[in-house]
Design a protein around this nucleic acid. Structure first.
Lengths: 330, 330
DNA sequence: ATGAAAGCGCTAACAA
DNA sequence: TTGTTAGCGCTTTCAT
């Protein structure tokens, strides 16, 4: 049987109220009694039951984070930052992975709510008013990351569109004339939340537009390698392949290398994310870096602020930057 | 205010006991009343409070996992598998990262215990009888992974030593005569738990011994690149650099490439882990693969079994394999 | 089949 | 300064 506050009370010959005062150093207790109780707690190896405390306090000192998966290195880095920051503030972290399944995500959120987390960090795959209605029903502080939901929800992220536009502008300056853009399947467009991907695509298009370039092939399916296979890059004008994330870019690079193409002589490749393994890849991938740890930190800070002070830290303070990384792949 | 079981009771004109019977479909309730209550719960948007349930049930339906960090891809994969499996069994997962800090780890475990997790998956940096004493004090089911603690604790992992021995034997068969082994700093040897690293090193030594090879340089500090820099690999007999994990191997490979060495012609490199990014690296790194997801699955299965049935699934069933991956780097 | 009531371990308000 | 007591929301036992 676990040692409870009552056991200590009995052991010391005081009441449970007094024990509570000592343990949580609240005022109204004689120093001597306090020491006695504290010693007893140590002797008996007392350990507080957060479950019971939560019940009466109405707070659990836990946060929940909802992510797709940890396949992309960036997510793992984000999670690390969030865990660290959360515990710094005294919060424990539940992790829930949705595998991009909309129903699963809803269930995860529901479970987190039932477990009475004090706040949720949400990288959602769901979107739309119905979903937002659903979220509002929980009346739990929620902060969205990466995938924007609506102005109703606090958001931490980077200006994806501007970042991509900036990157592609650099490429255009290098004299590339033809562009292929590779993005995850958008077949769920309009249904699932693909905010970040859409923003990056728009950034790409904007960069082309502002340079009076119209030619661009946009590939939004998983068979992009098949598509690339049909192309003879040595017979085209200098072509740049822009990928919406580094993982795609690495796949493309690997594929084109097996096809005997020289990169960037025959064809250029750009990624997005600057995942940490890039340093082991040659040629160095040109990409866009953003402070993923900072996003995690900001999210936690703002969320905890909301929980404890009743208001989020405003967006003005959570603006984050990006950086073009000139590699050798384009 | 949240809707409670009492609200439903009042709403339906029944007692809270009846509501409970309906909600958790326990026997002793008329079908009609049950439907009425269920409907009311829906109407009022009732959501159970797991905190309260936990208090009376003595179980929280949560597990905790304690890891160093998520820097190594393998850990992220492991975590993904664990989360998935845990929720499959109806458990939620707390994550606690220790950053290899011994005190931090103890604190994490303590917090998890206070939050009343039903079980803990532990990849520990602590070790020794004092620590084990500490763990026993919690009387919570614990399963250790990767870093073995003692026979007192259920363990899931792979035969690290045999795996490394097997891999190195392959290398020896290729005719390599000189060997350099690179491992994380062992300055804490005897203090922190470096079981896996020690086992791998022993496997390496055993492989040499059984081939009557004595020559080996073992580097156990972080300045291994400085050490390698002093060596002219073209003037030595064929040298193999064995790294205790892929991350080191990738660092070494990158470094030697910048030094103008051809791999594997001038020097061979082998890693361990088979992290998923290897496919983007050339030359393909020779390494050892093990089923990290399976380790996560087994850990959860065994832990849940212990929680629910009172006994762990025995070690015989949790033996996992490894596989030598012949790349082009050695 | 249903209701009443005790209690999980803790906190907090009120008495003494 | 200390003790007493009433909950927090739920489950469970014992009456009815």
């Amino acid at each position: 049987m676990r040692v409870t506050i009552k056991d200590i009370a009995k052991y010391c010959g005081v009441s449970s109220g007094t024990v509570d005062r000592a343990l949580n150093n609240r005022p109204g207790i004689k120093e001597k009694t306090k020491q006695k109780v504290l010693q007893a707690a140590k002797d008996l190896k007392y350990r507080p039951d957060f479950t019971a405390r939560s019940l009466v306090k109405g707070r659990t000192m836990t946060l929940g984070i909802v992510l797709f998966d940890l396949y992309n290195r960036s997510y793992a880095q984000l999670l690390t930052a969030v865990e660290l920051k959360a515990r710094e503030y005294g919060y424990f972290l539940y992790i829930a992975l949705t595998d991009k399944d909309m129903e699963n995500e809803k269930q995860c959120i529901e479970y987190l709510a039932n477990h009475k987390v004090d706040g949720i960090i949400l990288f959602s795959v769901n979107k739309g008013t119905e979903f937002e209605e659903y979220l509002h029903g929980f009346s739990i502080p929620i902060i969205t990351i990466f995938n924007f939901l609506s102005a109703d929800w606090e958001y931490v992220g980077i200006p994806e569109r501007a970042a991509m536009k900036n990157g592609v502008s650099h490429i255009i300056d290098k004299g590339y004339k033809q562009f292929i853009y590779i993005s995850p399947p958008l077949k769920y467009k309009g249904i699932t939340n693909i905010y970040t991907q859409e923003e990056r695509l728009q950034g790409f298009l904007e960069a082309l537009a502002s340079n009076d370039l119209k030619e661009a092939e946009i590939i939004r399916h998983n068979d992009y390698l098949d598509y690339l296979e049909k192309i003879n890059f040595r017979q085209r004008e200098r072509t740049a392949i822009i990928c919406s994330c580094d993982l795609y870019a690495l796949e493309v690079m690997r594929f084109l290398k097996t096809k005997g193409y020289s990169i960037p002589l025959d064809v250029g490749i750009m990624g997005f994310d600057n995942i940490d393994v890039l340093k082991y890849v040659t040629p160095a991938l040109t990409t866009i870096e953003y402070p993923v740890e900072a996003i995690g930190d900001k999210a936690v800070e703002s969320l905890v602020h909301k929980i404890e002070k009743g208001s989020y830290i405003t967006k003005e303070n959570t603006e984050l930057s990006y950086r073009f990384i000139a590699g050798e792949s384009i």
